[in-house]
């Protein structure tokens, strides 16, 4: 009995200490990790999308919502007006989730352009979603509010040859981004006012 108790106490104690240490470490480094991922993964795509903007879109960002529903928005200033917002959304690709940055013009409610951030698609086939600017160009000027689909599903986007799954994933991500934008538009408009110069 005594030995039994000792086993339980030692194992519980170890687990408790381990959990405590890890959650403390995670908590204290969370911000740094977020910034690193932002700088390494999202920033290159973001800067590419907003090339020619007058601000640094990585620095000018805000968040709406909290916890799981928290969404990050990046702001692009052109001609002195902060009229472009960028947000990231995900769709299930062939390999893993495909992350897509979608830049939306708030004055026209149209997509300005899109860019893939993270993916694990096949090089030369699905990976063209990130590497081939022509595919991303198909999304330019699409209005928000309508679901974005590939032609096979009755939409506008011609899928990349041999990569229908990836093309669908990008469409799903784009649709989800525009939906988020529509749902949060009043708050977005409120927030971007603070960025005008």
């Amino acid at each position: 009995m005594n030995e039994m108790l000792k086993m339980v106490v030692v194992l519980t104690g170890l687990s408790l200490v381990s959990g405590g240490v890890l959650s403390y470490l995670e908590g204290s480094l969370k911000e740094r990790i977020e910034n690193t991922i932002l700088e390494k993964v999202q920033a290159p795509t973001l800067r590419q999308l907003l090339v020619g903007s007058e601000n640094d879109p990585v620095a000018d960002r805000f968040k709406i919502g909290s916890g799981k529903d928290e969404k990050s928005f990046f702001v692009g200033i052109f001609d002195g007006a902060p009229n472009i917002v960028v947000l990231e959304a995900f769709g299930n690709g062939y390999g893993d989730k495909v992350g897509l940055m979608v830049a939306i013009d708030v004055t026209t409610d149209k997509i300005m352009n899109v860019g893939v951030t993270t993916h694990a698609e096949t090089p030369g086939i699905g990976a063209n979603a990130k590497d081939d600017p022509e595919f991303a160009a198909l999304f330019e000027g699409l209005p928000v509010g309508e679901p974005i689909l590939v032609k096979n599903d009755g939409g506008e986007i011609s899928a990349m040859s041999g990569a229908t799954v990836t093309s669908r994933a990008v469409c799903v991500a784009a649709t989800s981004a525009t939906k988020t934008y529509e749902a949060l538009k009043p708050q977005v408009l409120e927030q971007i006012k603070g960025f005008s110069k």
């Binding site: 240490v21 890890l22 480094l29 990790i33 690193t36 991922i37 390494k40």
Partner: peptide, 13 residues
């Protein structure tokens, strides 16, 4: 996990 968190924060590549 300590190593993993540290690497994420300081040596992401």
């Amino acid at each position: 996990i300590v190593v993993e968190i540290m690497m994420k924060a300081f040596a992401y590549d």
